[in-house]
Write a protein that binds this DNA or RNA. Structure first.
Lengths: 201, 201
DNA sequence: CATAACCGGATCGACTTGTTCCGGTTGCCT
DNA sequence: AGGCAACCGGAACAAGTCGATCCGGTTATG
């Protein structure tokens, strides 16, 4: 059962039809707001987007943060599964490159997720546990690739998460607007730069 | 005359010694706060850091934004000069690599500057003019390098500002803390990835 | 030593935001 | 059909933030 489902499964009394519909709208709205506007969204952002009232939100959910946390935890779990599956593939480099693309895409698709993973020490959403799990899987995956020499050896495994995260551009820089596939263009250059036998500059 | 100097040179009546000292403290405090905490700093952040009162700030400066803008404009001008000087050097690739390092370092050293350059459309500090100037110089510099074939030709010149900007990491990612020189480690990989003859993956 | 310039911070006013509350409405069961 | 519990939207509340102003007290300067 996903974290979002767990959040809504309270007394287990069957919901009235309109209540169920509104609950689904709220989750979809929160997810959308999180993707587009990041972590700093308000309860009003969510309910306006869902087309319901504030009362409807707080009847279903103990707090706004609880809803946001549940949504992000589900995505984090998805990412972790991605890393676990990659480690089971035969060729380390191919597995890593595939993971890198999926990881960056997932992260680029949600401002909120990206912000949560780049977060400072505060962690008001209590994501630390799930983030730790993800980090450990990524570490193992990267170390597998390094063990077969497919990544230049002047890099520490910790450099790779940073390089992947930085493939995701800000929306704008020096007055230029990022294209939707900018992360993919960046990632291409970065993956090529990871090669052990770089050109002799 | 720098923008900061212009801001303080009002009626040109000579300042009392303590007034001058406090003005200098305010500028230093604003610069430090901008570097460490980004654009979202409050007037109270600045005056506490400077060890003066709110009244002292608003006597010298029409608004907090005016002070922040003046500071950022000076740094932007510095960056633009960097690009102009790079274009006058003989070897395009060497000039570009040198500029890239200086540009990323300057940008990484100030959260506020980085945020302003990554900014959304709002531009409350009215930096557009200066940002445009910087972009044009960078464009010319990059196009010079591409003209001699020192950068792989599947990239657009616009990709380069994004790649440079993304070298700057968030403070943390998936629970890892960035080292102070993380931007340099990222930049190394990125510059190698820019090479025209990438390894045949 | 007189005084104009200057100082710090309490205070104002205008938001913002998470959460609660309640009068009115509606789906559901008999 | 009818009655009611569950549900609805959004006004209202309380706590907080933040830019800017103002003023009684202090200090540098001639």
């Amino acid at each position: 059962m996903s974290a979002v489902e767990a959040l809504f499964a309270d007394g287990s009394t069957r919901l009235r039809a309109d209540a169920r519909r509104n609950a689904e709208r709220l989750v979809a709205a929160a997810r959308g707001a999180l993707d587009e506007k990041g972590l700093d969204i308000t309860a009003r952002d969510v309910v306006n987007r869902a087309g319901v009232g504030l009362g409807t939100l707080y009847r279903r959910v103990p707090s706004l943060n609880a809803l946001l946390a549940a949504i992000l935890i589900d995505t984090l779990t998805e990412m972790t599964d991605l890393a676990i599956r990659a480690r089971q593939e035969p060729d380390p480099w191919t597995a890593f490159a595939g993971f890198a693309e999926a990881y960056v895409q997932l992260r680029a698709s949600s401002c909120g997720l990206h912000a949560a993973l780049s977060g400072t020490d505060a962690d008001p959403l209590d994501l630390a546990l799930h983030v730790d799990r993800l980090r450990e899987e990524v570490r193992h995956l990267v170390q597998d690739v390094q063990a077969v020499g497919a990544i230049r050896d002047d890099l520490d495994w910790r450099d790779i998460p940073f390089l992947l995260a930085t493939a995701i551009p800000a929306d704008r820089t020096i007055g230029l607007t990022a294209r939707p596939d900018q992360w993919r263009r960046n990632l291409t250059v970065i993956l090529d730069g990871l090669a052990p036998a770089g050109p002799g500059r």
